[in-house]
Design a protein around this nucleic acid. Structure first.
Lengths: 109, 109
DNA sequence: TATTCACTTAACCATTTGGTTAAGTGAAAT
DNA sequence: ATTTCACTTAACCAAATGGTTAAGTGAATA
């Protein structure tokens, strides 16, 4: 199965915002409640809630109710999809580079 | 020197659009003129020109005049910056996972 | 049961984005 | 010199983004 474009759309646009990248960085270390995340950034709770929603839509995190708290948990799978695309791109580029190198080698005698 | 947030902003938002990702895929294989790229996508030249500009601002490509043509050349450096961030994120996450594994190992006897 | 706490949703606003068509520019061809 | 080709910029538009404050919801506490 190949990654759908729309999936990469939501992943890359989720990662395009510095606040959201920082949130991911924090969640990579451990789970956090929304209020904890809000405490790290100088913006209103609704603003934070919106960012979380964007990350949730991109499946970069999952939310779970724990009593009156909502705990956010980092989900690594979409990140791997992004890495896959970037690596593939680099690989193709390197192949092109290899071709050039081979050409240069073959004609350098 | 550490990658500035604004740099990753422009890279990830450039990659958030499917048309621009396809352009990068094509340019990864070989250079193309603007008109060639335009031919691959069902949109006006100005629309293509705008996308190219976004990729140029993110330094994912360079433009050079060649007679009356403008040739676009793929630049791999920003892609490496994106890969660096994603890998770092995965690495931290894996470290956390290792910690969990170690804990489980230590308490499994 | 009423209140409070931890969010979420709604309504609003300014800015950005991604497209359009029309006008401008610079090199090539006639 | 004029026209044509390959863009680029300008002006416009609708939709999306990222923030705000105010109102709504669901679980815990008094």
């Amino acid at each position: 199965m190949t990654t759908k474009a729309a999936q990469l759309d939501s992943i890359f646009s989720a990662l395009a915002d510095p606040t959201r990248r920082q949130m991911i960085e924090q969640l990579g270390k451990r789970d956090h409640t929304i209020a904890e995340l809000a405490g790290m950034f100088d913006m209103s709770l609704p603003a934070v809630s919106k960012h979380i929603k964007v990350l949730d839509n991109a499946k970069l995190l999952s939310r779970e109710r724990s009593g009156k708290y909502v705990v956010c948990h980092y989900e690594p799978k979409p990140m791997k999809e992004a890495l896959k695309w970037l690596n593939k791109q680099q690989q193709f580029w390197n192949e092109g580079f290899d071709k050039l190198e081979k050409y240069l080698d073959a004609n350098s005698k």
